[in-house]
């Protein structure tokens, strides 16, 4: 579902005398449907940077990110922004550690939004959003409220609900269980496992080794693609 070849990414800080920070040097990996790949390596090895590149949030400098979209392969590293948006709508989901809330938009609407954007009737989208929030045990009293005042764990579950509701075929997970208590962690892992069983190809960062072992089939060691200047 996703094939990455020789991906390079670094940052040039123009405001710091064009300081050059290389992060990824030659990442190559494949993920098939129904498979979960863990990104492993210490902090600062570019795990989140890689996920952001795969989502098109960061611009890749070299290499290709081919994703299976509408029955064909599309290289996200070279795609037009409008194609990237279509891939995000129909194919590629991303669950980050942080929720970006929209002022005045209720939690329920926020979770239903990815479906509405794909043309699902608003009532059906709402019903599925309710199911999802109930499943993730977010108290019903919170549904009409915008999530910016929620606790970290509540926001995280809103994020997970929003990321999983579309049942997209490729999922990128950046610490989806980071700020959760054990019970809620178990529920989230169960939902991710279900998505996997349903055929989703998943790439994730999990600092929780138990979660990683339960979910992932393989690991990609990020230290393998460190730029030379950063090695050691």
């Amino acid at each position: 579902m996703l094939a990455v070849r020789n991906l390079h990414k670094g940052f040039t800080l123009h405001l710091r005398d064009r300081l050059r920070l290389p992060v990824l040097a030659g990442v190559s990996l494949d993920v098939r449907a129904g498979e979960c790949l863990a990104l492993t390596g210490p902090s600062g090895t570019g795990k989140s940077t890689l996920l952001r590149c795969l989502y098109g949030n960061y611009r890749s400098e070299q290499g290709s990110i081919r994703v299976r979209h509408r029955g064909g392969w599309l290289d996200l590293a070279r795609a037009h922004p409008r194609q990237v948006l279509a891939v995000r709508r129909e194919t590629l989901g991303y669950i980050s550690q942080f929720l970006r809330a929209v002022p005045r938009v209720s939690t329920l609407q926020l979770v239903a939004e990815p479906l509405v954007a794909r043309g699902v009737a608003p009532q059906d989208a709402r019903a599925r959003a309710e199911d999802m929030l109930r499943r993730l045990r977010l108290p019903e009293a919170l549904w009409p409220v915008p999530p910016d005042t929620f606790s970290g764990g509540e926001q995280q579950r809103v994020n997970v609900a929003r990321g999983l509701i579309g049942r997209l075929p490729v999922l990128l997970l950046d610490e989806p269980t980071a700020s959760l208590d054990p019970d809620n962690k178990a529920v989230v892992l169960e939902c991710v496992q279900e998505a996997k069983t349903a055929g989703a190809a998943i790439i994730g960062i999990f600092h929780d080794t138990a979660a990683r072992d339960a979910l992932c089939d393989r690991a990609y060691d990020m230290t393998a693609a460190r730029p030379e200047t950063c090695a050691g």
Binding site: T12, H14, L15, R52, G56, N57, Y58, R59
Partner: peptide, 21 residues
């Protein structure tokens, strides 16, 4: 020019970086 979140989160040009910073 590009995808909004990409330009804001990973600005390439010196002026865009200044603007976001």
């Amino acid at each position: 020019q590009g995808l909004t979140d990409q330009v804001l989160d990973d600005p390439q040009h010196a002026y865009s970086q200044l603007l976001v910073a």
